[in-house]
Each structure stands twice: as C-alpha cells, then as structure tokens.
Design a protein around this nucleic acid. Structure first.
Length: 599
RNA sequence: GCGUCCGUAGCUCAAUUGGAUAGAGCCUCGGUCUUCGGAACCGAUGGUUGGGGGUUCGAGUCCCUCCGGACGCACCA
C-alpha cells in the first residue's frame, strides 16, 4: 500500500515537470502546518518559481490545472505565495482503513523497501569487567530502535556490539584474580562461567584495588604487564581467564538487554579483540599507500581539514610510539570487516556526540584509503550522535559520590516506582500481574522518555516526569492501549463479536469529526516510520503515537462504541482495533516497549 | 585559542531539503461526570525563538557579529 504522501509527491512532481520542463523539480509535499490548510501542502512550486523567476501563484495554478487527484483529495487550493493545499477525501481515508484491516501480515498495510540494503548498526558497546551504567543507555536503546525500524522497512540489519573487551587493564585484572581467587582460577581451567565465583561488581572492585597496587608496587606492575604480554601472545592460562571474565560480563549485559527488551544477543557481539590480528595489516596498508606517516614516534594519518589547538594538522593516530594500537585502528579494522565480509551497504554508528570528531576523521581516512567502497560502489558511513543524560542539577547524571549510575539500579528504581503507582491505582490485581505491569511501565518509562527527546540534545533524567500519567509518556501511551483493550473485553459481555463485525464491514461512516481525525491519523503511520528511519530519530515515532493516543481519546470521549447504533458500530470498532494495533506495533515492535492489557 | 553542537512560553521540550498566525506537556485558572477504565476529556493564560545585522516572496531554521552554555581538540575509548 502506497502512502498518500508518496502518491501526491509523484503526481504533483510529474505535473510540475510537465508545466516547467524542469526535470529536477520536487513537489515537497509535507503534512499541513495547520489543519485549516487541509492535510498536506506542496511547497515545491515556490522554490521552482524562484529558480525560473516566474510568479509562483501563476505557476501553482498551471500545475493544479495539470493535476488529477480526484481519487484521493478534494480539489486542491492555492494559498499564500504559492502553497498547494490538499485535503484527503473521507472515502479515500475509509478505503485505506479497509486495506489496513485486510492486511493479515501484521504490517498494517505498510509496504517494505523496494530496494533493501544490508545495513550494519553499531551500538551499545559496553566494557568488559565493568557494569553497564547510564552512559550505555542511549546507545543501546536508540541503536535498538533504529535497527528495528530499518528491519521493519525490509532492510537486512546486522547488529554489531563492539564490546570493549581488550586493553592493558586486563593484565592488572588477571594478575589480581590469579592471586586472590585461586579457587576461581582453578575452576577456570574447566571453563566454568566465572560469574559463579565472581560478579562484575566484584571485578570493578578488584580493578580499583589492582590499580592501586599497580601504582604502588613496581614488582606487581611488572607482573601485570607480563600478563598483558602473555594474553597478547595467546598464553592458554591468560586467555582462559580473560575469556571467562568476558563471558561473565556478557551474561550480566544480556540480563540487562533482556530487561530492556533490546534485541541484542551473543551472536551480535564482535568485540575489539576480534580485530587484533587485523591491526598490523591496517597500519601496514596505510603505510604502503603512503597515507600513514610517522610523527613523534607514532604512526599517523593526517586527513585534510583537521587542526590541533596549535593550528597544526591533527593526526589520526593508528599506532602509538610504544607500538600499541588504538581504537582508531580497531575502528578501521572493523570498518573493513563490515564492508568486505559483512557486505554492508551502509554502516550506522550510534555513539554519544562527543565522538563526532573521531568519526569525521575515521570516515575521512576510510575514504582516503578507499575502504568505504566495494565493487566500485560507495558504502554510506553514518554517525548517529546523541546528547548526554543529565541529573536534576543539569550536569551529567552521577551518584552523590560522583560515580556513574548503574543501569541496573536505575531500572530497578523505575520499576519500583511504577509498582507503587500500580499498587495505589489498582490494588486488587493479582500480585503477579502487578509485577508484570510494573516492569512494563517502569522500563517503558525510562525508554520512552529517552526516545521522545530530540536525540541530539541533552536531557534531564526525571523519574517523576517519565512516570507521569499526563503528557507524552509511556504510562499515558500504555493507558490508552489498555482502554481500547478494555472495550474489546467488554464487547464479549455485550454480545458483540468484533471479528464478525470487522469481517463484514459495510461502508465506513466517518461523519463525526473525531472519527475522521482519528482515521486520517491512522493511515499516516507509514509516514512517521519513514521519517524516523530517514533521520534516525525515534522521537518522530513517539510524537506520532502520542498524537494518535490523543486523537483516540477525543474520539473515545465523543463517540460511544459498543452502544453505537448498529450502522455506526463497525466503523467505530475498526477505529478502535486499528488504534490498538498501531499503538501495539509502534510501542512493542519498533520501540521495544511492552504494552499491557490492563494496568 | 580553534572547532562542533546548542540557546524557543515560568519549567521540560517539539517544529521533517527555508514555508503560512512558532506547537505540545507540566504548572496556573476555568469547564465536562448517569465511567464502553476520570490514570480521561474540553478550554484559557502564557513568546521580540539570547541581542543586533544580513540574504528573500518567506528565517527558530541559512550567512555575519556579539553574549551565554555544553562538548571536543597527539599517542584513553
């Protein structure tokens, strides 16, 4: 099913070509800025008129004369300096609603991408031996949403969890574990999960202790460095211990992914260590191509256009003066792997905006080396940056003692607060159901609050705001869903068979303003998904869903459904059914937020 | 110092290649009730889009400048 905006763009664009002879002109159809202008407006005529130096209103008249939109719209109106205003016909809206209803695939009548791509989405990327903290929240859930949306549109999405599983700190950690946890080490030889003896929280603690000893005790520091060497050279004992540390960390990450309803699995993990063997090749190839040069003992590429604070060329360092590699090197190796092995047509990196410069340089170096091409075709490299999560004080969210807030603790508190609300509002529900609702609402609130903010700006984290019943929040959306579901439950007791009425739909009757408003919004779900995908912006989805819930509420207040006259009832049941399905799809399929039948 | 991003209602935020009279929510005030779930709905108040200049039919959006803020800027990621 083609969306109205696409059809309008095509037809108006074609009419513009016929009138002007200009091939490159676009109709630029957008949702109307004000309902009184209709449902859509075409803004393209004015831009073309400017180019051609003609009167925009006259040009608009000529274009409209060439148009035949009678199957979709009321006659177009020209307004202001040359807008073409378009209003959907109720019959068209009704026909679209019937089509969505007839779609048994669960896609709500939304067609897939005609030319699917292979896309790599790089997100989450926590560090081994550290608990996930609030700094990992945004990458994890925004990356998940982007992946879900692109996948729904028909692309082949390869998720990549670029785990921080390598570095010199593991020498210290292994040294410490080996000394203080001989029983764990012994079991380590049997490759049992390390988590049985040692949690990631323990590891963090150990790491701090190890760091102190490293700084104070030269002998200890030497041994730690020896472990690094042993690890890098593949020493079985070192590798075994390292592997078990990684596995224990991943188990804890997976628990959080599951709780967050994020579609990441162990299969998506490809950590930094996976590229170890490729790093010398990256440096060697760049040297051979004369792109990398030595500077102050380090191997660097100097992409044009980047300067240090002294105004000198800024290096992209790929090998330190002591011979070690950096994340720049690893990122280049990963990029080559994704292009050459995973056959990516597009690579999307979801990281915080502080890394903008790094990715600009990475992409530039990849281009200089020709590594962003496969079979002569350019691979699109996209950095999707996001802002920070702030505390009430406007500074990056930390605990009182200045530590990062653990993601697990954050989620636990959200669920706990949601549980208190459920307890207050609906004390008679069975305890098990209360717990389920609290989990859906609490975790959903944290995610929804993040998604509904502009990705690029910082936002202030506030439990009370994200759990509010009013406004653009998860509980409001979930409540709207529960209300529709409540009608469905009630239908049975009133002897109304929804499946029967929806199967034998007669002509839809969208005469009430709230019916038509809701219907028009329902048929525009695809637009919201497409704009969210185009700009990698989940807040377009939340904005759409919020507006949907508002329109439903208005309809719900205005129009009785089950007690409607028999002639009106099927239409209203359909509006309810499609509202529920759309909210369900948006929240649960695209945002990964659970809906509940009752709350 | 240089660079990037940002500054929108009292507060938190929207505004989709530059589009019409800058929109929501919270707060405040007023209204709706014989609950298909009131965790709701309807309405009102509230703005020189940080200041100034420019580009044009049209600027929150683009350019210049000043003020204020966040982040980044050679061997951490």
């Amino acid at each position: 099913m083609k969306s109205a905006i696409d059809i309008l763009n095509e037809r108006i664009g074609a009419a513009m070509v016929r009138v002007t002879g200009c091939q490159s002109c676009a109709a630029i159809v957008r949702p109307a800025t004000d309902p009184k202008f209709g449902d859509y407006q075409a803004n393209g005529v004015m831009a073309v008129a400017k180019q051609l130096k003609t009167n925009p209103r006259k040009l608009a008249e000529q274009v409209v004369a060439q148009l035949d939109l009678g199957d979709i719209c009321e006659p177009p109106e020209i307004a202001g300096p040359g807008f073409i205003n378009l209003r959907l016909k109720p019959q068209y809206v009704a026909a679209q609603l019937r089509q969505i209803n007839a779609d048994s695939t669960g896609r709500l009548g939304i067609a897939g991408e005609p030319e699917p791509q292979t896309l790599v989405v790089d997100f989450s990327s926590p560090n081994v031996a550290k608990q996930m903290h609030v700094g990992h929240l945004r990458s994890t859930i925004i990356g998940d949403c982007i992946s879900r949306v692109l996948e729904f549109l028909g692309h082949r999405v390869i998720r990549q969890n670029h785990l921080g599983d390598w570095g010199t700190q593991f020498g210290m950690l292994i040294r410490y574990v080996q000394e203080h946890f001989s029983d764990v080490v012994a079991s380590g030889m049997r490759e049992e999960p390390l988590s049985k003896g040692l949690s990631v929280a323990d590891m963090e603690d150990l790491y701090r202790k190890a760091k102190h000893r490293y700084d104070d005790d030269p002998q200890y520091a030497k041994e730690a460095r020896d472990w690094v060497v042993r690890l890098q050279s593949g020493d079985p004992e070192a590798v075994s211990l390292w592997r078990r540390i990684v596995r224990a960390s991943l188990e804890e990450c997976q628990a959080i992914y599951d709780q967050l309803n994020v579609q990441l699995t162990q299969n998506d993990v490809r950590g930094e260590s996976a590229y170890n063997n490729d790093l010398p090749g990256v440096v060697g190839d760049l040297k051979r191509a004369s792109l990398a040069t030595e500077s102050d003992g380090a191997v660097c590429v100097f992409p044009p256009g980047f300067k240090t604070k002294e105004g000198e060329p800024l290096p992209f360092i790929i090998q330190k003066s002591d011979g070690a590699y950096l994340y720049a090197t690893t990122d280049l190796a990963a990029l080559r792997y994704r292009v050459d092995v995973l056959k990516a047509d597009r690579i999307v990196y979801v990281t915080d905006s502080r890394q903008i410069l790094h990715f600009q340089m990475l992409f530039k170096v990849a281009e200089m080396a020709g590594w962003d091409r496969r079979d002569g075709r350019k691979v699109e490299l996209v950095h999707v940056p996001f802002g920070s999560v702030l505390g009430e004080d406007g500074k990056p969210l930390k605990t009182r003692s200045g530590e990062n807030v653990k993601l697990q603790e954050l989620l636990d508190e959200a669920v706990e607060r949601a549980r208190a609300v459920v307890e207050e509002k609906n004390p008679d529900l069975p305890p098990q159901q209360k717990a389920k609702i609290a989990a859906a609402v609490g975790v959903g609130a944290v995610k929804y609050a993040d998604y509904s903010n502009n990705r690029t700006s910082d936002y202030v984290f506030s439990f009370s705001k994200m759990l509010a019943m009013d406004g653009n929040t998860a509980p409001y959306m979930q409540y709207a869903y529960a209300r529709v579901k409540s009608i469905e439950r009630k239908a049975e007791s009133k002897g109304v068979s929804i499946p029967d009425e929806l199967r034998d739909l007669g002509n839809l009757d969208l005469t009430e303003p709230t019916e038509l408003d809701l219907g028009k919004h329902l048929v525009r779900y695809a637009e919201a998904i497409e704009s969210a995908a185009a700009d990698y912006r989940p807040n377009y989805l939340t904005a759409y869903l919020y507006e949907l819930a508002q329109r439903f509420s208005a309809f719900y207040t205005e129009c009785p459904v089950l007690d409607a006259p028999p002639a009106k009832r099927p239409t209203r049941l359909l509006l309810c059914d499609l509202t529920a399905k759309t909210i369900q799809h948006g929240l649960s399929q695209l945002l990964g937020i659970q809906v509940v039948e009752q709350m």
